[in-house]
């Protein structure tokens, strides 16, 4: 049993949980993920690590309640736990010193980009973070991101906080006046797709963290397969970080839609 040490509702339908996981905390690197299974009848699903403490033995995950499993996870009370927690999985994010890095986080993707942003800054880069969400209430971890960034720009679809408009638009405006050496984007696939389109125009190397469907997370099934530079790769072991300009985004979007009908059935049952 893996215990929930702390649970916070940090935005509408968005939860932050600290889990007791000393072994994972002692080995984790920025960009890696874990696979969880809540109960005996549960499915295995991946979440990217937001933070961890090797000294205190915890990991932190932030997720939005979208389906049956995140619904179950969000309901686990402090002191209670889940059946399975596996990790850290995937290759760590590539941390290089390149000059000016721009970290673009969309929605709960901000949680996944947080440790990468922190490491890029630690490696001596100047870091600008561009955070986007539908509304101001959904912009998470603003203080934490400010603490690891030289500059934070917020963009919301409805203009309730920061710039009005999508995060991709905010990035485009930013790149018109500022030179960037690297862009990292994490968020919904569609947001990463358009972010990569923008940076291609500005010829800025771009890395993305792909969120394909996973089952085992160890390379044994290939459900997470993606095409990068014309090659089939398994996101769980070859990634999840890839060159955004090489990813076949339409294929990823199509594959992500494979179980929409089943997910709707699970969601209704979970309520």
């Amino acid at each position: 049993m893996f215990k929930v040490l702390k649970r916070q509702n940090i935005a509408e339908a968005v939860y932050s949980v600290h889990l007791e996981a000393p072994q994972i905390a002692s080995r984790a690197s920025a960009g890696q993920f874990v696979i969880l299974r809540i109960d005996e009848k549960g499915e295995r699903f991946p979440l990217t690590l937001c933070d961890w403490s090797p000294d205190e033995g915890w990991i932190r995950l932030i997720f939005q309640v979208v389906g049956a499993s995140t619904h179950k996870l969000g309901r686990i009370e402090e002191g209670k736990g889940m059946l399975d927690l596996v990790g850290p999985l995937g290759r760590p994010a590539e941390i290089t010193t390149c000059g000016h890095a721009v970290c673009v986080g969309g929605g709960v993707g901000i949680a996944a980009i947080h440790p990468i942003c922190r490491e890029l800054r630690r490696a001596g880069n100047r870091v600008t973070s561009i955070l986007g969400a539908r509304t101001g209430d959904l912009v998470i971890l603003e203080d934490e991101m400010a603490a690891v960034s030289d500059k934070v720009i917020v963009a919301t679809d409805d203009g309730s906080k920061g710039i009005k408009g999508r995060v991709t638009w905010a990035l485009e405006e930013f790149l018109k006046s500022e030179r960037a050496d690297l862009v990292i984007a994490i968020g919904p696939a569609i947001m990463m797709k358009y972010t990569s389109a923008v940076t291609r125009e500005f010829e800025v190397p771009t890395r993305v963290s792909l969120n394909s469907i996973m089952l085992d997370g160890t390379g044994m099934c290939g459900t997470c397969r993606v095409e990068v530079g014309g090659q089939t790769r398994f996101a769980c072991v070859d990634g999840p970080e890839f060159d955004g300009h090489q990813v076949d985004w339409n294929l990823l979007l199509s594959r992500l839609s494979q179980y929409l009908g089943e997910e709707e059935i699970s969601r209704r049952l979970a309520r």
Binding site: G42, E43, L215, R255, L269
Partner: peptide, 29 residues
Amino acid sequence: NLNGVFSANEYLTRSNLMKAYLFPEYDTP
């Protein structure tokens, strides 16, 4: 890589390990 194309490992793991043949009683589709 079209939808609906699976490795046998994936197809059988879903069914056998995750009991997807009992979906939606079990969560894995």
